[in-house]
Design a protein around this nucleic acid. Structure first.
Lengths: 94, 94
DNA sequence: TCAACATATGAACGCTTGCTCATATGTTAA
DNA sequence: TTAACATATGAGCAAGCGTTCATATGTTGA
């Protein structure tokens, strides 16, 4: 991967963290997996808006999904996601 | 600071990392401070575009500036900036 | 198979953002 | 002060993005 590609992908990655709704969703998933409806209820958002954002987060590999019957459960993809969130938070709180 | 404010500020922070031009500028500053013209030359951008982005990065406290004669030198603000960039890069390269 | 529920998706709209172009401000040397 | 250089800024435009609304797809139990 050349440098230009790295820069583009890095900017792309941070773009997914650059929205309050997605941050809230990722924070909401820190305690473990949740289904779409629970996320929508918990964050007081429409099911549609949540689902759109979940798709974006999943496509970007920041979250995972698992179907169980009618429900689809989402969870954070790996510890990088948490680390990025926490480093950002450290910066904010400084 | 309440949670809503934290989320908004965190999203705001990542927004500044979410642009290839700003990433390139920050990478360009990793080796030490540089003046506006050197950045524009090094990144093959117009002086105006660079200056606009530098203002954004400085307002958001991701970079610092220091005037020396006609030139203004910019540098990364602190180690959080580097850490966020590096953690993001680790994620990309995984 | 059909009704009820859970989730996903497409279109459209309003808002934001990064660029260019033109111009303004700041600084030094003469 | 004035010319020359370095940097900053304002207006305007094109592209991208998050939401809502309407609808489609997927799944289960009867």
């Amino acid at each position: 991967m050349d440098n230009d590609t790295k820069v583009l992908e890095l900017a792309e990655l941070f773009k997914y963290f650059a929205d309050p709704t997605r941050i809230r969703i990722m924070f909401f998933l820190r305690d473990g997996e949740r289904c779409v409806n629970d996320i929508a209820d918990g964050l007081k958002m429409t099911q549609s808006a949540v689902s759109h954002q979940l798709k974006i987060l999943k496509t970007s590999k920041l979250i995972r999904s698992r179907r169980e019957g009618k429900a689809v459960f989402y969870s954070l993809a790996d510890e990088h996601v948490q680390l990025i969130l926490e480093t950002g938070m450290d910066h904010i709180l400084e």
